[in-house]
Amino acid sequence: MNAPSIRALLVDDEILARLAIRQALAAHADITIVGECGNAAEAKQAIDALTPDLVFLDIKMPGMDGFRLLHGMRRDTALPMVVFATAYGQHALQAFDANAIDYLLKPIDQARFDQAMVRVRQHWAGLTNAVSVAKPSYLQRLSVVCGEHVRVIATADIDWIRADGNYVHIHAHGKAYLHREALTGLLASLDPARFLRIHRGIVVNVDRIAEVHPLFQGSAEVVLHDGTRLNLSRRFRASARHALGMS
């Protein structure tokens, strides 16, 4: 049985911006556009009437911005998934505080848009308990906020990841980037053939592992090609042995 179609509402005061999202959605046949709105007041009525599953939402709009719209919505029903589409990169952290699925910058880039749709489908599958027999799609890139900019990092370039509460520190290219997402949620969207959990709070790209050093009492240490040393806890040693082909 096919997963149910995702019903989407487009909210942006610019007609061309809504058209751009329509064009980007043309490659995603499982998304049905149920309406368009030119401001937040119209969107509030449309959300109540149409109960969309997904809202593509601009931030800067006349009268009421996208954040005020979300904060003023009814809480007695399930809120739709939200993907922000805006020309302003400085609001990314606030967007994720509002539980947005993703944050797209205008002009819309198709590859980045497709990445956002991977996140939407993963979240939608969890909401609907849909079962798919198709090969799962894993993140190829992710975006992290760096000051007033958004940096796109290819997942293949990630060396390792460390949990920090509801955030993670992503280590890539010799730098660490703070990203607002819990480790468990991020790990679910990464290819398990490439990323290995070696500790409750540490995930490593297996291609970066150079050596494994056994330590006392069943624990071990993983050494990356750049010399980084990470603890391999006893809890995850069996899965690490299998992933690394250790006898």
Score class of each variant (00 low, 15 high):
residue 239 S to N: 13
residue 33 I to S: 05
residue 202 I to R: 14
residue 196 L to A: 09
residue 128 T to I: 01
residue 66 G to C: 06
residue 174 G to I: 07
residue 210 A to Q: 14
residue 140 Q to T: 06
residue 203 V to E: 10
residue 19 L to G: 08
residue 191 D to L: 09
residue 14 E to D: 11
residue 162 R to L: 09
residue 168 V to G: 00
residue 4 P to V: 00
residue 94 Q to W: 08
residue 38 G to E: 10
residue 243 A to Y: 05
residue 68 R to L: 10
residue 98 A to V: 06
residue 133 V to Y: 14
residue 40 A to L: 04
residue 45 Q to Y: 08
residue 4 P to K: 01
residue 35 G to R: 02
residue 118 V to H: 01
residue 172 A to Y: 08
residue 94 Q to L: 12
residue 53 D to E: 08
residue 222 V to Y: 12
residue 178 L to R: 04
residue 243 A to W: 09
residue 96 F to W: 06
residue 39 N to Q: 12
residue 190 L to Q: 09
residue 123 H to C: 05
residue 172 A to D: 05
residue 47 I to N: 07
residue 184 T to P: 06
residue 1 M to G: 05
residue 225 H to A: 15
residue 130 A to R: 01
residue 136 P to Q: 05
residue 45 Q to E: 14
residue 132 S to C: 07
residue 184 T to A: 15
residue 178 L to S: 03
residue 147 G to H: 07
residue 39 N to E: 10
residue 187 L to Y: 14
residue 155 T to D: 03
residue 21 I to V: 11
residue 106 K to V: 10
residue 188 A to Y: 13
residue 80 P to Y: 08
residue 89 G to A: 15
residue 189 S to W: 02
residue 5 S to A: 11
residue 43 A to M: 02
residue 126 G to N: 07
residue 171 H to S: 14
residue 56 F to A: 07
residue 201 G to Q: 14
residue 55 V to Y: 02
residue 247 S to N: 15
residue 105 L to A: 12
residue 65 D to T: 09
residue 1 M to R: 11
residue 93 L to I: 13
residue 164 D to F: 12
residue 109 D to M: 14
residue 114 D to L: 10
residue 82 V to G: 09
residue 148 E to C: 03
residue 88 Y to E: 04
residue 1 M to V: 04
residue 96 F to N: 05
residue 84 F to C: 05
residue 54 L to C: 04
residue 234 R to N: 07
residue 162 R to P: 00
residue 150 V to Y: 05
residue 123 H to G: 05
residue 1 M to L: 04
residue 129 N to S: 08
